[in-house]
């Protein structure tokens, strides 16, 4: 699997290269600033990109902007964004086009190599990987969208928002896969999402949730 990596701290960049290399990824470009990242994304068309939000030269959200710009030109280009802090504002911007293939994780998550690599693979396959912190922030507020869900459905949505498959959710919650399927169908119904391709609906559910919880 071909990966473009953008991270300006040398140690972390090398560490990520090693980690991804050890799990069978091929690093086609490792850059340390925004303009280079955009060029690499458009030239290489990688299977997945791992991007730090804050990059030189401005030291603002250069990485996020480059990723969004690349996705505008190549819809659905899988991008996993890493950051020292998570903002719902950014999560929404990433998910806004509704095409999936988006991840947004705290940098701490690379500590757990297995889970991190799993998230990279999920994003590459067109799924989502939202940091549990983003999700926790959503559930910290009570409002209509969440209020209409049963506690069990909320748990399912929480895991779905993180990007887990029905099988993985079932495993976590000790449910059968078909029971999870029923819950997800009920969630889609309550969020008013029409029947369509399941993967897409999962992204839309998370997005509706991010928007609705405003």
């Amino acid at each position: 699997m071909r990966v473009v990596l953008a991270e300006d701290l040398y140690l972390l960049r090398e560490g990520l290269k090693q980690l991804l290399g050890a799990h069978g990824f091929e690093i086609v470009a490792a850059v340390d600033n925004g303009p280079d990242l955009l060029r690499a994304l458009l030239d290489e068309r990688p299977d997945v990109a791992v991007v730090d939000v804050r990059l030189p030269p401005t030291q603002t959200d250069e990485g996020l902007q480059a990723a969004l710009a690349a996705r505008r030109q190549v819809p659905g280009l899988p991008v996993l964004v890493l950051s020292q802090h998570v903002e719902r504002l950014y999560a929404r911007e990433l998910l806004a086009d509704g095409t999936g293939g988006v991840g947004y994780l705290l940098k701490d998550r690379v500590f757990n190599a297995e889970q991190f690599v799993d998230a990279v693979r999920r994003v590459a396959a067109g799924g989502t990987a939202m940091d549990p912190d983003v999700i926790a922030k959503l559930f910290a507020r009570s409002d209509d969208t969440v209020g209409r869900l049963t506690p069990r459905e909320r748990e399912v949505l929480e895991l779905m928002a993180e990007g887990r498959s029905n099988a993985a959710i079932g495993q976590r919650l000790f449910l059968s896969e078909s029971a999870v399927g029923k819950h997800t169908a009920s969630i889609f119904g309550k969020l008013g999402l029409a029947v369509s391709d399941d993967d897409n609906r999962r992204v839309l559910a998370v997005l509706a949730f991010l928007d609705g919880a405003r």
Binding site: V53, Q59, E87, L89, Y90, A140
Partner: peptide, 21 residues
Amino acid sequence: PPVLAERGLVEAVRALALDSP
């Protein structure tokens, strides 16, 4: 707040607003 450094005042307050109950 990092979002203030990255996006400036208005966007940072928007991010704040998203997290407000």
